[in-house]
Amino acid sequence: MLKSRVALPNVPLDGVGAVFVTQEPPPGVRVAWKAREANWSLQDVAVNPDYEIAKRQIPDSPLFDVLPPPSVFAPSPGEIVRSSLIQTWEGTVVRVNEESHAMEVHLNAKIGQVPEHAGEIDLQWVSEQDKDLVQPGAVFYLTLSRRVKRGSVENNQELRFRRLPSWTKRQMAQVEQDACMLLSKMKAKPIAE
């Protein structure tokens, strides 16, 4: 079933995560499921609802990374692990408060009909490699999950920032063309007395 491995474009790998693709992506859209922990079983991966979310959410992108060899991600033999996803949020940083060492965020749930929420998240939960991305407007993904391992419950949370791509020359040409179109439609009226 496992045919290829690619990284989610918005979740750069840090050496402990992995992406398992359970089928060949359709043309134009690459789908992926990220198994954050090295010892998640392939079965867990295949049935996890986030696979479907990823299939819907992840657009084609030039930012896919090829993963390290699969041996790094193999689950421990004989180990029984059950993982369940609680919620995945897409967040936007509204403001960074250095004094309280927290970021004000907007959160949009990706699972279920959950209203938009706002709040503060402590910066300690941001990984070192993402710290430079924490600024107003930055987009991140917060995944809350629970794992049962040998009868004990372990809560996991992952907060990863999306690295935005750069403007391309083609996009800039489109912006210029669109801007000309917009300006051509502005018809100023005379200002009163």
Partner: peptide
């Protein structure tokens, strides 16, 4: 307006969570 477990988990890593609308 969140399930108890989700809110608890959010409060583990932050505070002041509220509905926008």
């Amino acid at each position: 307006d969140l399930p108890t477990d989700q809110l608890k988990r959010l409060n583990d890593i932050g505070r002041n969570f509220s509905q926008v609308n």
